[in-house]
Design a protein around this nucleic acid. Structure first.
Lengths: 193, 193
DNA sequence: TTTCGAACATTTTCGTCTTTCATTCTAATT
DNA sequence: AATTAGAATGAAAGACGAAAATGTTCGAAA
């Protein structure tokens, strides 16, 4: 990594921790500069604006999240298990990555073009990932799915819906139990046979 | 109905149509009074505050919604069919009743105590209704459900999640198709058998 | 090339005044 | 007495300009 990239990285880490605590609006460039022990104008040597820094931080967190999910999934073959691990890993790290979580949830940020783009882009990526898992399951003749598009949308929507409620109400252990039940519902449906 | 209740009703209808167009904040008591051809202080003879009027309007709409749903469900016996009709009816009328829809969705209203109460109360009622349908299905040995509580939560969350997306993207016919698929997913799951 | 102090530009904050609006009062009308 | 509404009240929301804070740029220095 080049010298300049190392410095950018350092500034980004500082910015990340401050943004995590105070959010985009309540942190000033000066704070970041002070914390990083540089003059505030130096920041502009590396980033073109405050929004740009925030964007970089969120993208960094997004990259981390994707890596964590990929790492968790890479040596799992069973598509049922894969879905479960995907959901669990997603929930776990999304909560840790405060800035991306905020960018995805906070209503005050939705007017920023890059946040909107981030949301739809990331939605799409997740849909694609879910679709791939489903397709693999179909290919292996484990799943029988009529409309993969709709099914993955429903899975993602449900995930986003229960995520908030569960992560405030339950501990990690209970969440896993709920996810198991949710997956059981998804796999088997509710009809008696 | 007493004279005073008739007048209240009339004022409420006027208020409903104005609130529907402009929302709680952008409509003034004066507007309602003018539209109803009464002096604005007369309104206070019937309602104790602006919030009180809005509350009454929302409750009126809620009552309408419940009636519509009950009417639609009353002579359906099959629990599968019942779920479908519930979902369709709910979607259809919720969109027509602008004020309750706003009260349930609009972030600016969530600070009002009665809106919060309305939301949680109505959530509970819907959960209860869904549970009842599920219980009936279990009783008739059509459904096999491990955790009825979680299942009904998941159904409601999914409903609320797809509702917005679908109602902007699809027409009534396509929505019905999607709901059919959604129900198929719910009933049969995705596992091949 | 990199840094930073100072200058500049833009936004936010604050105080003041004015206007609007919800609510109350009071007297008139039914 | 029940009902209505004009006028009064007070609190909140806007309009506006000055001052302060903050984001961004520039040019000189390390």
């Amino acid at each position: 990594m080049s010298k300049i990239e190392e410095k950018k990285e350092r500034l980004l880490n500082v910015a990340q921790s401050i943004f995590s605590r105070f959010g985009l609006f309540k942190t000033t460039i000066d704070e970041i500069a002070k914390a990083a022990r540089v003059g505030k104008s130096s920041i502009y040597y590396y980033f073109k604006s405050k929004e740009d820094i925030f964007k970089a931080v969120v993208e960094k967190e997004l990259k981390t999240l994707k890596e964590k999910i990929n790492q968790a999934l890479v040596n799992i073959d069973n598509p049922q298990e894969k879905l479960k691990v995907f959901i669990l890993t997603r929930m776990k790290y999304l909560r840790e990555l405060a800035n991306i979580y905020n960018a995805l949830q906070n209503d005050y940020l939705e007017h920023y073009a890059f946040v909107q783009k981030l949301r739809t882009d990331y939605d799409n990526e997740e849909i694609i990932l879910i679709k791939e898992i489903l397709q693999k399951g179909i290919q292996e003749e484990r799943f029988a799915i009529d409309d993969v598009e709709l099914t993955s949308t429903v899975i993602l929507v449900t995930l986003k819906g229960v995520e908030f409620e569960w992560s405030t109400k339950f501990n990690e252990n209970e969440i896993e139990k709920n996810i198991d039940k949710l997956l059981d519902l998804l796999f088997n449906g509710i009809l008696r046979r």
